[in-house]
Simulated scan of single mutants.
Amino acid sequence: MAPSVSGSGLPSGCQVFTTMPDILFILEFIFGGLVWTLVASTQVNPANPQGWVMFVAIFCFVFTTIFFLIYICGANQSSVWSGLDVGYHLIAVIFQLGSAVALAIATQDVKALYDLNLATFKSYQEDIAAVVMAYLCTLTYFIHAVFSIIRFRSS
């Protein structure tokens, strides 16, 4: 990735698409959107873990969008933004990991209830896909957090 960043250590404009870890925003959008879509299309009982997973998916998707737009507009040139970037991504990692684990446990518990007919097996496969996407999303946020910490410490 190109190391071209502004004076505050954070990229702005189109540099967001060429610098690490900011290019990970795109993967966070993809995996977060897939988690959101897959969880919304499945029915896991009890619905309580699903509510937490949806809250985390929507929360992280909205705040990642806000961060991404702020970076593209170049409004992130204050020295505060690198700390906010680290803080947000650490919170996102904790939330995403918690929701991924809750979704995995709920999916595993529901597996025993499926009688594996075609309709319920398809729903079970969607649940598994949601769990996989949730863990990929967690991993992406974690990698972004690590690189943000490195960038914060070097600035």
Results as ranks from 00 to 15, higher is better:
41 S>G: 12
63 F>N: 13
118 L>K: 12
111 K>E: 10
67 F>S: 08
59 F>Y: 15
22 D>W: 07
87 G>A: 07
58 I>V: 11
81 W>C: 06
51 G>D: 14
85 D>A: 06
92 A>M: 03
38 L>E: 08
64 T>L: 00
66 I>M: 15
84 L>D: 06
25 F>I: 12
50 Q>S: 15
90 L>Q: 01
96 Q>F: 03
73 C>H: 07
25 F>M: 13
124 Y>W: 15
108 Q>G: 05
72 I>A: 03
54 M>D: 15
45 N>K: 15
58 I>H: 01
26 I>L: 15
43 Q>D: 13
48 N>Y: 00
70 I>T: 13
93 V>R: 00
57 A>M: 04
110 V>S: 01
86 V>R: 02
87 G>W: 00
38 L>W: 05
71 Y>N: 02
41 S>I: 11
117 N>S: 04
52 W>R: 14
35 V>I: 13
87 G>V: 02
52 W>M: 12
42 T>V: 15
116 L>I: 02
68 F>V: 09
116 L>W: 15
106 A>G: 00
123 S>D: 15
112 A>M: 04
87 G>E: 00
95 F>G: 01
93 V>F: 04
61 F>C: 04
91 I>G: 09
117 N>Q: 14
84 L>T: 08
123 S>V: 04
54 M>N: 14
65 T>D: 01
99 S>T: 07
42 T>L: 11
80 V>F: 07
111 K>R: 11
82 S>M: 02
109 D>R: 10
86 V>A: 02
88 Y>R: 07
47 A>K: 09
98 G>S: 04
81 W>I: 03
84 L>E: 00
88 Y>I: 06
115 D>Y: 06
94 I>Q: 04
98 G>I: 00
109 D>S: 12
118 L>N: 12
100 A>E: 05
90 L>W: 02
69 L>W: 09
65 T>K: 00
33 G>K: 11
110 V>P: 02
123 S>P: 05
56 V>P: 07
107 T>N: 00
76 N>W: 08
48 N>Q: 09
64 T>C: 05
62 V>N: 04
60 C>A: 06
111 K>F: 05
124 Y>N: 04
101 V>Q: 03
70 I>A: 10
31 F>N: 00
30 I>M: 14
53 V>H: 05
108 Q>C: 07
92 A>C: 03
114 Y>G: 02
43 Q>S: 11
107 T>Y: 08
115 D>T: 03
57 A>Y: 12
50 Q>P: 04
80 V>E: 06
75 A>W: 12
107 T>S: 05
50 Q>D: 14
101 V>A: 04
94 I>C: 07
60 C>R: 05
26 I>H: 15
38 L>T: 08
99 S>Q: 13
56 V>H: 10
31 F>W: 14
104 A>G: 08
109 D>T: 03
95 F>C: 07
54 M>H: 10
123 S>T: 09
110 V>T: 06
70 I>K: 00
72 I>P: 03
118 L>I: 15
98 G>Q: 00
118 L>T: 15
111 K>G: 03
85 D>F: 04
38 L>Y: 14
108 Q>S: 10
22 D>Y: 11
55 F>H: 09
33 G>M: 13
88 Y>D: 01
77 Q>M: 08
113 L>G: 05
59 F>H: 13
46 P>N: 08
88 Y>W: 10
64 T>N: 12
56 V>R: 06
40 A>F: 06
45 N>F: 11
103 L>S: 01
102 A>C: 02
46 P>H: 11
112 A>I: 05
88 Y>S: 06
77 Q>P: 12
54 M>L: 14
121 F>E: 14
66 I>Y: 04
122 K>T: 13
